[in-house]
Simulated assay, not measured.
Amino acid sequence: MTEAMEPTPDHGETSWVGRGRLEGRKALITGGDSGIGRAVAIAYAREGADVAIVYLPEEEEDAQTTERFIREAGRKCVLLPADLTEEQACVDVVAAARSELGGLDILIPNAAYQRQRDGVETLTTSEIERTFHTNLVSTMLLAREAVPHMSPGASIIVTTSIQASSPAPGLLDYAMTKAALVAFTQALAEELGEKGIRVNAVAPGPIWTPLIPATGFPAEKVKEFGADTPLGRAGQPVELAGAYVYLASDEASYTSGAVLPVTGGKGF
């Protein structure tokens, strides 16, 4: 639960001021109940977009909080509880988002799973599959379902990670999926360029989201999370939102195949 975190993450609830940069757009955001996904959903709504968010059914309370902020911005919000490790769920959420929103202009496959691994010898097939299906396979399936219904000017924005280029041994499987998503972004940008659909990625560094205390890190590591960055602290989810707004907006009309690092100064 987001509310149980100390300090409470800043998703831009009181700070993000929209400027109409996404007026009339229709966005599907996975993992939109909390963390980066919530921050992007709030920013998109205040920039004029209607938003559908996907989240695990057990995160309903967090999802309803995100919904409230979207509706307070005067935009439509569609709640789509689903487990994206299942192929049919990926098919269904894209279809539902298109139907409820009246189309789809922006796809943000942002949902992710990570756990601290205590050595390669501790890896289990079930955990590898959960990580790969959540982070990588669902992204590919969502794109497969969305692209045939997207028009020129549409945008896909993938959430990769600094782990793609600076992998930590304890996040071996997670880092592998994030590196693969960089290749996915670049390859899909090449493929979809002729359709006028742009594909980019954001690479967060250490960002204070519910994913961090849920990862299984030692308490001291959680306490010092982000202190090793040049800026000396973890980032807040709202500090990612601007990257996603930019990449979806007309200001990024000539940007595709890019990976935008938001890392507190750590090299990507």
Results as ranks from 00 to 15, higher is better:
residue 4 A to N: 06
residue 6 E to K: 09
residue 7 P to V: 03
residue 7 P to A: 02
residue 12 G to T: 13
residue 15 S to G: 06
residue 21 R to C: 04
residue 25 R to G: 02
residue 27 A to T: 08
residue 28 L to G: 08
residue 32 G to R: 13
residue 32 G to H: 11
residue 34 S to G: 04
residue 34 S to N: 09
residue 37 G to V: 11
residue 41 A to P: 12
residue 41 A to W: 11
residue 42 I to L: 15
residue 45 A to E: 14
residue 49 A to W: 07
residue 52 A to G: 08
residue 53 I to F: 10
residue 54 V to S: 03
residue 55 Y to F: 14
residue 56 L to Q: 12
residue 57 P to I: 05
residue 57 P to R: 02
residue 60 E to N: 13
residue 66 T to R: 11
residue 66 T to H: 08
residue 67 E to R: 15
residue 73 A to F: 09
residue 73 A to D: 10
residue 74 G to Y: 07
residue 81 P to N: 07
residue 86 E to Q: 09
residue 89 A to S: 15
residue 89 A to D: 02
residue 90 C to T: 08
residue 90 C to W: 01
residue 99 S to M: 06
residue 99 S to H: 14
residue 103 G to R: 04
residue 104 L to V: 12
residue 106 I to F: 13
residue 110 N to C: 14
residue 113 Y to D: 10
residue 116 Q to P: 00
residue 117 R to Y: 05
residue 119 G to N: 11
residue 119 G to P: 04
residue 120 V to F: 14
residue 121 E to C: 00
residue 123 L to H: 13
residue 124 T to C: 10
residue 128 I to R: 05
residue 128 I to Y: 15
residue 129 E to I: 05
residue 133 H to S: 05
residue 134 T to C: 01
residue 138 S to E: 00
residue 138 S to K: 00
residue 139 T to E: 00
residue 144 R to P: 10
residue 145 E to L: 00
residue 147 V to Q: 09
residue 148 P to A: 06
residue 151 S to L: 14
residue 155 S to K: 11
residue 159 T to K: 06
residue 162 I to E: 12
residue 163 Q to M: 14
residue 164 A to C: 01
residue 164 A to I: 02
residue 164 A to F: 04
residue 169 P to K: 12
residue 171 L to A: 14
residue 174 Y to W: 03
residue 174 Y to P: 02
residue 177 T to D: 01
residue 177 T to M: 01
residue 177 T to Y: 01
residue 179 A to D: 02
residue 181 L to S: 02
residue 184 F to H: 04
residue 185 T to S: 04
residue 187 A to V: 11
residue 191 E to F: 01
residue 192 L to H: 08
residue 196 G to I: 03
residue 200 N to K: 02
residue 201 A to T: 08
residue 204 P to D: 14
residue 206 P to K: 13
residue 207 I to T: 14
residue 210 P to G: 04
residue 211 L to I: 10
residue 212 I to P: 05
residue 213 P to F: 07
residue 213 P to R: 07
residue 220 E to N: 09
residue 221 K to P: 00
residue 226 G to H: 05
residue 227 A to V: 09
residue 228 D to T: 05
residue 229 T to N: 10
residue 232 G to Y: 10
residue 234 A to Q: 06
residue 235 G to C: 13
residue 241 A to S: 12
residue 246 Y to F: 15
residue 248 A to T: 06
residue 250 D to S: 11
residue 250 D to R: 10
residue 252 A to V: 05
residue 253 S to N: 14
residue 253 S to D: 15
residue 257 G to V: 08
residue 260 L to A: 11
residue 262 V to H: 02
residue 263 T to Y: 01
residue 264 G to R: 06
residue 265 G to C: 04
